[in-house]
Design a protein around this nucleic acid. Structure first.
Lengths: 333, 333
DNA sequence: CTGTTAGCGCATTCAT
DNA sequence: ATGAATGCGCTAACAG
């Protein structure tokens, strides 16, 4: 279907009997133009079906009215929620948000960054795959354009950061758990993710700090299948009752699914706590107790960070406890 | 952080003592270059930290080695699964897949299409928001570039299509239900989506065709909250037992959540069937019986459609029944 | 195999 | 207020 050749400003200019400069000024509305001529130009543009070539514009302006977002994995519901909210935060027609999935690969992540930089994005939002090994990607990005790390960060880079206080989140969970359960008799187990991203590390550290330095810990990745696997191991080890604190809702949902499929009782014998506050947490039965990240505000914050076009700066949001039915409710007991 | 000025091929050429053309040829590897010179060029490029400017390249080549994907909503897990699988299908470094969310808005969808066309994408993949009102967006896209509609389509446009046979999917569900349940005594209810997308319409038509033209039907949107709402209405109407066939897993999960939270028994009193086969279906308890779309194959199919660079063509995949525990299992009864 | 030249489409000087 | 000219960074055509 690629047609003959696309219509350019020169075509519009010819039809309207003016210069290309006038066409440019008329269509971008950046300077005053005689109303009569303006009409002629827009008519001609309509008639020819003219569409700006953003590549030409970007080359000339050395910017593209585009913000790039690189996420590790779009199938992770927390990341796709961030992507969607960020898209919505840029619904203003003057800036397009484009999303690239790194497919949890450092190479692909680097490719995404190079690609966006090469496309002259005005800013880059990045959820780094790895706390150390994404350093090159983040630094490269930050050296070229305003770069904002989201949710996870690589320490020591010249990039901004927007995320939640993970330790504060773990503290909310700890306070909730200890005020409703006798932790001395009921064991607490932390099912987390290997600390190769800052959020995994901070949540692990939070669990160790608030519960106990040697809280029983199982580490895997941010996935439901890891949650199932961890639950299976727990049951295999003869565990019959526990409070399972996890590093993410997806993990918690996997844990919960396995426990329920094995006929275990939640929250009577097992309690399960998530992290993130994705929509699916409320959909589970029993509904998942979790800690919600203010995703929408975070997205808006990124937008204003980009608009202030400016300085490196970071912002930590406070998460909030969301009581579900996978843990005993304080009010009711 | 925007640095002084980015290094161009001219800088590399100067340092290596060759012409820009040689630099271009060396770095794109498109033509043979003297090994010694090649070395000098790559050394110079490394030393200066040269990165291609893809905007310049795209302007010159009138293509950008980019494929655009416009999805209605990234928070819908079926769409984000498609986006992720498609990204993976383009993991080959020579083509970047960029995703734009239309935020379920026709205006934003149109903007996304214009944006990608203006960026000279080599092909456009589109999940149209509306079966009729997205016509302009699809036609515009198809007139300019190879356009592939995914999952949903606008009839009568010059665009390719990749999706599943929705009627066949409904038939699988019908056969499963009727071979395990006495439909004469146990009512079947269809909880679907208003037919303003082709998939919503085809699934509705499938339900009416295979079950009964006047199967009780409730229509909303593709969301879990609509599922909850529908279930609430059913219970409010005094329904105490039914087989609930839905248009999507997200709807089914909402239905299921509400039924379980109301203490209803699944699958004894209520049966629930989904559509799509997203990961969360297996995570529910009881696990959701559904019909799975071969998302990965569909993604690969799109990739080869684009590579064959060619003619308009369409492909319907066959969905497969996935037995969960929200419906009676045929083998076991 | 390499250098020179030209031009992709546009926004922005500088003149007028 | 408008037009002519310039060049953003790159690759392709053409010589050599």
């Amino acid at each position: 279907m690629p047609p003959t050749r696309s219509v350019t400003m020169a075509d519009v200019a010819r039809l309207a009997g003016v210069s290309v400069a006038t066409v440019s000024r008329t269509l971008s509305g950046i300077r005053a133009v005689d109303p009569a001529i303006q009409q002629r130009v827009t008519d001609a543009a309509d008639q020819l079906g003219y569409q700006v070539n953003l590549v030409g514009r970007a080359l000339r302006q050395t910017r593209s009215s585009t913000v790039g977002l690189v996420v590790p994995d779009l199938e992770n519901p927390y990341f796709s929620a961030l992507a969607q909210q960020l898209s919505r935060a840029f619904s203003d027609p003057s800036i397009d948000l484009l999303v690239f999935s790194a497919d949890s690969s450092l190479e692909t992540e680097a490719r995404g960054v190079r690609s966006f930089l090469g496309r002259q994005v005005d800013a880059l939002v990045l959820i780094p795959v790895h706390e150390e090994r994404s350093e090159a990607a983040v630094s490269t990005a930050a050296a070229a354009v305003h770069t904002i790390q989201l949710d996870r960060r690589v320490p020591g880079t010249a990039a901004s950061y927007v995320g939640v206080s993970n330790k504060a989140g773990m503290r909310l969970i700890h306070d909730h758990v200890t005020s409703n359960i006798d932790v001395a008799t009921q064991p607490v187990v932390y099912v987390g993710a290997t600390p190769d991203s800052s959020s995994a590390r901070e949540r692990l550290e939070g669990a160790q700090r608030w519960f106990s330095r040697d809280v029983p810990t199982m580490l895997g990745d941010f996935s439901a299948s890891w949650g199932r696997e961890a639950a299976r191991r727990l049951l295999d080890d003869g565990c019959t009752a526990a409070t399972i604190v996890t590093a993410a809702d997806v993990i918690a949902l996997g844990v919960l699914a396995h426990l329920l499929h094995q006929g275990r009782s939640v929250p009577d014998d097992f309690r399960v706590i998530g992290f993130d506050g994705i929509g699916a947490a409320a959909l589970a039965h029993p509904s998942l107790t979790t800690v919600r990240q203010p995703v929408e505000e975070m997205a808006r914050s990124i937008r204003s960070l980009i608009e202030s076009a400016g300085e490196q700066s970071s912002r930590w949001f406070e998460p909030a406890l969301v009581l579900g039915s996978t843990s005993p409710a304080s009010v009711e007991r």
